[in-house]
């Protein structure tokens, strides 16, 4: 049954509280300082003025921050998969003493978020002079309890005969783990990676407490600093930085919408 116009408008109207703020962000980013001072809440800029973007690039090394953020999120996501595969394999497919205990330990870490860990990790890394390094940003997240759990769950549905057959063909355990299994676990691996990537790409807390140095600083941190540095009305510059910060996340969302939504919903339902 096709919807009538008023109801169609109603559907879009529901999304307006989410769409208008984005529009306001983009609109502000194209304003100039005199415009902003004269009429701060004018809905539209006088034109597509790029001054604010130029100011962002002048205030911080956008390219370097972008590279740091992407490298960090990529390294974390890949490391998590690389470690979760063998761990999940051992936990779901092999019989050995202490299996229940090991699984319990992995699940228990769901209880220990970054906010609980950061004080001792900070003092530990400060002692070995590793704060302000990529290591400090990546290594504490090399294991994801949730990722390990999801991959273990997915492995439960892989028939053991398949692994036995591969063993008979002479495949070693590492070949089985890194060659045979990944294609079979693809949806779970993609979901685990995407969630981790987006989470860490967006993360503000950990880079904030672990870095003080430009060379390893990430984009969320840099953009948040834009606001702290400035005095007075510099909202056009802050919003330009904000467009640069949210655009990659929104683009990734547009490209992987179905996987991300399925992963979000599946996290609850175990599908």
């Amino acid at each position: 049954m096709p919807l009538r116009w008023p109801r169609r408008l109603g559907l879009v109207g529901l999304a307006l509280p989410w769409l208008l703020p984005y529009a306001w962000m983009v609109s502000t980013s194209f304003k100039t300082l005199p415009e902003l001072v004269a009429a701060p809440s004018a809905p539209l800029p006088s034109g597509l003025n790029l001054d604010a973007y130029a100011a962002v690039f002048e205030a911080m090394p956008v390219g370097a921050y972008l590279l740091n953020t992407t490298l960090m999120a990529l390294a974390i996501g890949l490391l998590q998969l690389a470690l979760a595969l063998p761990a999940g394999y051992a936990l779901s497919k092999l019989s050995f003493r202490g299996r229940g205990l090991a699984f319990g330990l992995v699940v228990a870490t769901l209880l220990i978020p970054a906010q609980v860990r950061f004080v001792p990790v900070f003092t530990l890394l400060a002692e070995v002079r590793l704060t302000n390094t990529m290591t400090a940003l990546v290594l504490p997240f090399a294991v994801s309890a949730l990722g390990t759990f999801l991959i273990r769950q997915a492995l439960l549905s892989v028939p053991p005969q398949l692994i036995e057959a591969a063993r008979l063909d002479g495949a070693g355990e590492l070949t089985i783990i890194y060659r045979l299994l990944p294609p079979l676990l693809r949806p779970s691996l993609v979901a685990a990676f995407l969630f981790s990537f987006v989470y860490h790409w967006n993360d503000y807390f950990w880079p904030l407490v672990m870095t003080t140095d430009d060379s390893v600083r990430t984009l969320p941190l840099g953009v948040a600093l834009l606001r702290e540095q400035g005095t007075g009305v510099r909202w056009h510059i802050v919003m330009a930085g904000n467009v640069l910060l949210s655009l990659p996340a929104l683009l990734l969302f547009a490209l992987t919408q179905r996987q991300l939504i399925h992963a979000a919903a599946g996290k609850a339902a175990g599908r």
């Binding site: 306001w24 502000t28 503000y204 969320p220 948040a224 909202w235 802050v238 996340a249 929104l250 991300l260």
Partner: peptide
Amino acid sequence: IVSWVSVALLWLW
């Protein structure tokens, strides 16, 4: 999906 920092800055304004 957008970061907390983005959302916070946007609403701050």
